[in-house]
Computed example of a mutant assay.
Amino acid sequence: MSISAKDVKELREQTGAGMMDCKKALQEADGDFDKAIEVLRKKGQKLSEKRADRKANQGLILTRLSDDKSKAAALEINCETDFVARNEDFRNRAKQFLDLVFEKEINSVDNLLETQLEGLTVADHLKDMIGKIGEKIKFNRVLSVHSDGQYISYIHPGNQLGVLVEFDGEITDEEIAKDVAMQIAAMNPIAVTREGVDSSVVEQELEIAKEQLLNEGKSEEIAEKAAKGKLRRFYEERVLLNQKFVKDNSMSVEAYLKENEMPLVKSFHRLQLGEES
């Protein structure tokens, strides 16, 4: 069957697939547009299966806040190359998926993939994208959260690192709140407070410190006491409110917030591209 250039162009505009792919799909479907779209979708499925074992360690991290800052969402979408991650169409699709996470309050990748968007599941949309782009595309993390306080968001340039910070009350100064979010991005704390550090981590740090001191010839009693001193330094390095504030090392993050009459941090989420979820 002869396929006109006009039909190929129209199918390309509808699907975003390549010209030759559109022409072949129309030929296979005997000119039927609906069937041709299905052919392209199946092609995307086959390509998805072929690329399942490929590494997708590029992509974007996006966040969104409600107007009153009581609700927040975050999304990590991965692809194979930075070239695709910087593509405007890819970014627009990622924003659509983030909006869906925000509006539907989705909290898992599986739930997002099953959710309908414009008459198709998100999983089908991904297959279509894979078919058009020719790269493996997947979601690594999906997050939807609420607070009685307020959130601030920080996205590091390049969209490879994002932070959501929950404050225990109204944010009275957004610049200060943003400074704290940037502190989390830069210093990568493991908890907000000492109490939030997993007990197994504390025990391991004490054991390592004590073992080092015993190897240096210290007595058991001295090693026990000195290990606790090293643990305090560990808290100063890895616990957010105990960390020295990066813009003023003379005070801790907690002291900085209190000095500026800001609510303390209640929780945070730090998403770095490619990290295990």
Rank of each mutant, 00 (worst) to 15 (best):
I3C: 03
A5H: 13
L11G: 01
M19L: 11
M20I: 13
D21W: 00
A25H: 07
G31P: 00
F33R: 15
I37S: 07
L40H: 03
K42R: 14
Q45H: 09
D53N: 15
K55L: 14
Q58T: 10
G59P: 03
G59C: 07
L62N: 03
R64E: 13
K69A: 12
K71D: 10
I77S: 02
C79F: 04
E88N: 14
R91Q: 15
K95T: 15
K95C: 07
K95N: 14
L100W: 07
K104H: 11
E118N: 15
V122N: 05
A123H: 06
K127H: 10
I130A: 00
K132T: 09
R141M: 00
V145K: 05
S147I: 01
Q150N: 06
I152R: 01
Q160R: 15
L164M: 12
L164F: 03
G169R: 12
E170V: 13
T172N: 14
E174F: 10
I176A: 05
V180M: 04
V180S: 00
A181V: 03
A181S: 09
M182A: 07
A186T: 11
A191G: 06
E195A: 14
E195H: 08
G196F: 07
D198H: 10
S200L: 12
S200M: 09
S200K: 14
V201Y: 10
V202W: 01
E203I: 08
Q204K: 15
E207S: 12
K210Q: 14
E216W: 04
E221L: 13
A223Y: 04
G229E: 10
K230T: 08
L231P: 04
R232V: 11
K244Y: 02
K247M: 12
D248Q: 04
N249L: 12
S252R: 08
E254C: 02
K258N: 12
E259S: 13
P263W: 05
K266T: 08
F268Y: 08
R270N: 09
Q272H: 11
L273I: 13
E276K: 14
E276Q: 14
E276H: 09
